[in-house]
Amino acid sequence: MCGRFAITLPPEAMVRMFDAVPGNDVPQGARYNVCPTQMVAAVTSLEGVRHLRGLRWGFVPAWYETPTDGPLLINARAETIAEKPAFRAAVRARRCLIAADGFYEWNVGGNGARLPWFVTRADGRPMAMAGIWQDWERAGQRLTGCAIVTCAAGPDMAPIHHREPVLVDPADWPLWLGESGHGAARLMRGHPEAALRAWRVGVGVNSNRATGAELCAPLATGTPGA
């Protein structure tokens, strides 16, 4: 799954990267511990025009009476996304890209402790995580929520965790955003070997209240299972 990530790119840089129209609701400032229910910067496309906008991390199905009427849906599994009633309409028509420097994942050490890792692209470029989004409204309350699409872990992630977010390469952004026809399902796969790199980080990130650049700083040592 993907339950935390970091993003330090300013909105202006994301606008340039995605060639998007800026919105006025995009979160500002470097964020080293983005958590579910917080606002995230996402790119959507409407009639071929990309928009950088703020979305709430947490997909709310249309039938929820309140945003907390059921489980908090922060991830959507690629293998079942087209079949699940909560997601199947969104994956056909409301796909988005969520920018990140990298994401956190946990494995279990020899003493049973949960050990956090920070995962980035091996080439150092920002990530564009595949997402889906949906508007929800009840009794005057309105929000637009999103979920990150996940898939089986590729060879770089498998020693740490069995799932990873779907990462979309720049050449495939038009396809995922629905700008270049059909076939986005083929993008919902793990990355090949040597595409990602990961390092152990301190347990401070285990708290969803933690902030600061030190959260994703590497420890002196760290190998999966250590």
Rank of each mutant, 00 (worst) to 15 (best):
M1A: 13
C2M: 03
C2V: 00
G3W: 01
F5L: 13
I7R: 14
I7L: 15
L9M: 10
L9P: 03
M14D: 08
V15T: 02
V15Q: 01
M17L: 15
D19T: 04
A20P: 06
V21P: 00
P27M: 07
Q28L: 12
G29K: 02
G29W: 08
A30D: 06
A30H: 11
N33Y: 08
T37V: 12
T37W: 14
M39H: 15
A42V: 05
T44A: 09
S45Q: 11
R53C: 14
R53T: 15
L55P: 03
L55N: 03
W57F: 07
W57N: 05
W57L: 09
G58R: 01
G58W: 00
F59R: 10
F59C: 07
W63N: 00
E65T: 09
T66S: 04
T66C: 00
T68V: 00
T68W: 00
D69M: 00
L72C: 10
L73N: 05
R77S: 11
R77W: 10
E79S: 05
E79Q: 11
T80W: 01
I81W: 09
I81P: 08
A82Q: 14
A90Y: 02
A90R: 00
V91P: 01
V91A: 01
A93N: 14
R94I: 05
R94Y: 03
R95I: 08
C96F: 13
A100H: 04
A100G: 02
D101A: 04
D101P: 13
D101N: 13
F103K: 05
F103H: 07
F103W: 15
F103S: 09
N107C: 11
V108K: 15
V108L: 04
G112M: 00
G112V: 06
G112H: 08
A113Q: 15
L115K: 12
W117K: 01
F118T: 03
R121C: 10
D123H: 01
D123A: 03
G124S: 10
M127P: 06
M129I: 02
I132C: 02
Q134T: 11
Q134C: 05
Q134I: 04
D135P: 06
D135C: 08
Q141L: 14
R142M: 05
A147K: 05
I148Y: 05
A152W: 11
A152R: 14
G154Q: 09
D156T: 03
A158V: 13
P165R: 07
V166S: 04
V168E: 04
D169A: 15
D169I: 00
P170G: 10
P170Y: 06
D172W: 03
L177Y: 09
L177R: 04
L177M: 05
S180Y: 08
G181E: 09
G181K: 07
H182A: 15
R186D: 11
L187W: 10
G190R: 10
P192I: 07
A195V: 09
A198D: 04
A198L: 05
G204I: 00
V205F: 02
N206K: 10
N208R: 13
T211Y: 03
G212W: 09
A213P: 12
L215Q: 14
A220W: 02
T221S: 14
T221Y: 11
G222V: 07
T223F: 12
P224S: 06
P224V: 02
